[in-house]
Nucleic acid binder design. Structure first.
Lengths: 345, 345
DNA sequence: CTGAAAGCGCTAACAC
DNA sequence: GTGTTAGCGCTTTCAG
């Protein structure tokens, strides 16, 4: 078993030609080869189940059709959607993806980065949580192309696909204010990531604009955990909502930093018999697929994950093909009105 | 920019030793090298930012630390959880994953399989939807190791991680029957996959055991679509529930072939003002993370996705290390009682 | 202990 | 049109 694989040399020997000729036809080179030989070689390759060895080719040509994708965790639907977008574009271009879950661990991220590079990967798309830019800088100097999504990564030659989190936070809170809400709570995971910080600032912007004084007790920030986030966000939503529910005067609306947290908010609210949106309105952030699958469907801010993935891929390819590194993109948030918000009387 | 990468030869030249020696120390070979040389080389490597080229190593040694993972779509939380499990084990072992979404397309699956093989990948974990076993058989003969998850793949030398779908279907329906339900509807995606067929059979088993005559009008099977499933399943759940709602006599319980479909069921039911579980009980299948995040939390059948991923990885490694191909595993379903089922009066 | 040399599978000058 | 040859970066006999 596990018989030796047939190479172009084997085919060459059998066909009685040189391996160069075989290479030329089997690699679909444009180099001229007589059609008799071409046919003969193709047939022989077929007969002998020839399958090219890309490793050999890679070593010779320094080409590589893998791109690295580093995200916190694929089990977060937002990222799985981004990754799907990337993979879909990659497939169409005969590229493929080397998937890395950094699990919020900067060390993990760096290890993957290095491994990617060792494997001659030329391009990476990542949502970076590392603060140490040393390795990254070094790799970029060695030719690695990088697209940062979701989290900013201010390094020369890195292209970014940003998202206007602040505006998103603003839109959500403003929408609530426009509906007559004045006691708008904000429930969030730790503000340790720039994206989260920005959403919070947007919330603040909207309050100020609406002339609503910030009530400290209405903003609940969870403790940093480290570990499995996906489940954690939901639990955070529940936990923080429980705290909110203990207030002498309840908020009339709760804005959550992401949909998963909003699910936690809704779950806890429901368990306590408070009706959504009759008693309390809720708005999320992200617009993951599930947000429209719950009852009532969640009003939220759309962050175009799938498109983000496709865009990131395209930008990476442009970079890798020698394009200029000078066009960051800022994706715009959009309010998705569904059924978890009502106007206050 | 993009300066040439430093190789062991560069280091050798600078150190005034042979590249063989450099290789021996930098590849952490057990081969004896004097500690002075060793130190010198290590330092030089450090100084010059040496990063090994795995492609060269691979070509020489025929080793490869990539495993292929082919799933229908990563955007389905069940699969993203499986993949996370695989990736986590792989990372610990210094392996990594080449992610493939077959998107329910057999051709896609085959293309990926071939690409994987071209890239010298030695092991694959897949949820196969292809019926053509020709390519797969050929690759296995050439030494590819394969673990089938989720969908059966009856080929010699393929190890399977099965799940007792039939029993799962049985448990769900039996639970409903035990709660006094007699009009139990079954709502499912097309029965074109063995797994789905089995769940349905389990449902039938339970009805029969409970002495309930099958009512054709209570089993609703959606039309095959092709395309984005994740969203589709939810819509299917809604659609089929709408049909159920038109019946002159409503079911008292609805069993859905997976959680996502169950969400659709619940959504539609809620929109029509029917209360869960007061009016109609619902049970899902899979126990994806979200099933506990909705209100009320979904009663469902647990399919251990994450563990399945880890298990699959371990089995693959055993196969790749020359272990025997003779231990299929059948994972057992478990009923997860939450709040969408009530006893019938 | 160290080095010389061969070669993994493939491509690309360069010659014929 | 076709063949010869020289590597890509690495490991690994085999000598010394």
């Amino acid at each position: 078993m596990m018989k030796k694989r047939v190479t172009i040399h084997d085919i060459a020997r059998i066909a009685g030609v040189s391996s160069a000729t075989v290479s030329r036809v089997l690699s679909k080179s444009s180099y001229p080869v007589s059609s008799e030989l071409r046919q003969k070689i193709e047939q022989l390759a077929e007969e002998h189940d020839y399958i090219p060895n890309m490793v050999g080719k890679q070593l010779k040509t320094h080409t590589n059709t893998t791109i690295g994708v580093i995200v916190p965790t694929i089990s977060n639907p937002f990222y799985s959607s981004v990754v799907l977008g990337i993979e879909e574009m990659a497939r169409r271009n005969n590229y493929h993806v080397f998937l890395c879950n950094s699990l919020q661990n900067p060390k993990q991220e760096d290890e993957y980065l290095e491994k990617l590079f060792e494997n001659q990967v030329k391009g990476v798309i990542l949502s970076s949580i590392s603060f140490n830019r040393k390795l990254m800088t070094r790799l970029i100097k060695l030719g690695l192309k990088v697209i940062a999504i979701d989290q900013p990564l201010d390094l020369p030659d890195v292209l970014q696909i940003k998202f206007d989190y602040r505006k998103g936070g603003y839109m959500a809170a403003k929408y609530l204010a426009d509906q007559g809400h004045r006691r708008i709570a904000y429930v969030t995971a730790p503000l340790d990531r720039p994206s989260r910080q920005s959403i919070y600032e947007g919330y603040l912007d909207a309050l100020q604009e609406a002339g609503i004084a910030l009530e400290e007790q209405l903003v609940k920030v969870s403790e940093p955990t480290g570990g499995d986030e996906t489940r954690g966000e939901f639990e955070n939503g529940k936990l923080l909502t429980r705290q909110l529910l203990e207030l002498s005067e309840l908020p009339t609306a709760i804005f959550a930093c992401n949909d998963m947290t909003a699910f936690g908010v809704i779950s806890e609210l429901t368990e306590h018999g408070v009706k959504i949106p009759e008693h309390i309105s809720v708005v999320g952030f992200d617009n993951i697929d599930f947000s429209q699958m719950i009852a009532p469907p969640l009003t939220t801010i759309n962050q175009p994950s799938y498109e983000m993935g496709k865009l990131a891929y395209n930008m990476l390819m442009e970079l890798m093909n020698g394009g200029q590194a000078e066009m960051d993109i800022v994706l715009q948030p959009k309010l998705v009105q569904r059924s978890t918000v009502t106007a206050v009387k």
